[in-house]
Design a binder for these strands. Structure first.
Lengths: 154, 154
DNA sequence: GTATCTGCAAACCCTTTGCAATAAG
DNA sequence: CTTATTGCAAAGGGTTTGCAGATAC
């Protein structure tokens, strides 16, 4: 299996872009990070390691990583973008507590045949799919039971 | 079945908020609209009807509608929020073409037992779930086949 | 050498907020 | 009467962009 760096270098070469240390350092940092990140956390963790790369460069690099399938955007509905690396990681989904904001990842094997079905029924070739679930974790529900009343859906 | 207006008035009364014509006009406009909308399109369609309500009031009203379960946020990853009415509509998911941006809605019956499973396995009470699929529609794939190569996932 | 990339700072855009006037209860 | 709500305009915060200098190829 190719490393994320190899994937990226191939992509850069194919497109006639340029291989720069900045982009590769950003990529390495992303794949050294566990879980989700955003531009700010990425910028700060690079700074803490003594690497000075501007936010503009980060903003310009992320679309490249997305485009070659290494990372993807994650929507937490909190006013800015989050990202996660997807290359080399199991497909997973997000379950977010509306009170404390904690995000749990889970798998949904039932969606295995989704791509085939959407191709057959609608003619779409599926690139990615993501299940976004909101609810209340046990702790928050017990702390404030009224918050979770009357809102259950199947 | 209650109308969306009744739902909203009940919610307003329960919380001790105030019933204003602005909020009810916004709500009516949302439920008279087919499909998705954003703040700007909502503001403009109100203007076209001669209704002058500030964007600030729209921005302040939407969280109320979300809170009482009438609408929800939709993420199209294009830099701003979109919304859709969910009250009185079938649960559905989104399939978006990465080239032309067209959004197709579809149903996924396989997720019927999701809520029960997440409760049993993780203790979460599910409020909402949404499946977000990206891919290429047939027309765009045939127009530019290279765009859809090497990116299929199950 | 030439075109791309970086860093900086300013511009941008969507969203939120402070404030005075207005209106609901 | 009291307090929430509105509209306006300004502030806010994340993201994008113009430009000059640096750098990959």
């Amino acid at each position: 299996m190719k490393s994320e760096l190899e994937i990226f270098r191939e992509y850069i070469r194919q497109r006639g872009f340029r291989r720069t240390p900045e982009r590769e350092v950003i990529l390495a940092e992303i794949f050294a990070t566990h879980g989700h990140f955003d531009v700010d956390s990425l910028y700060l963790s690079l700074r803490q390691k003594g690497v000075k790369i501007s936010k503009a460069s980060i903003y310009r690099a992320l679309p490249l990583f997305i485009d070659c399938g290494l990372i993807r955007e994650v929507d937490f509905s909190d006013g800015h973008w989050h990202y996660e690396h997807i290359y080399g990681h199991e497909q997973h989904h997000h379950l977010r507590c509306l009170t404390c904001g904690e995000v749990l990842e889970f798998e949904e094997p039932g969606l295995g045949c989704l791509g085939l079905r959407l191709l057959q029924e609608y003619g779409y070739t599926v690139v990615s799919h993501h299940l976004d679930v909101r609810g209340y974790c046990r702790a928050c529900r017990e702390a404030e039971p009224s918050a979770a009343l009357g809102k259950e859906t199947p």
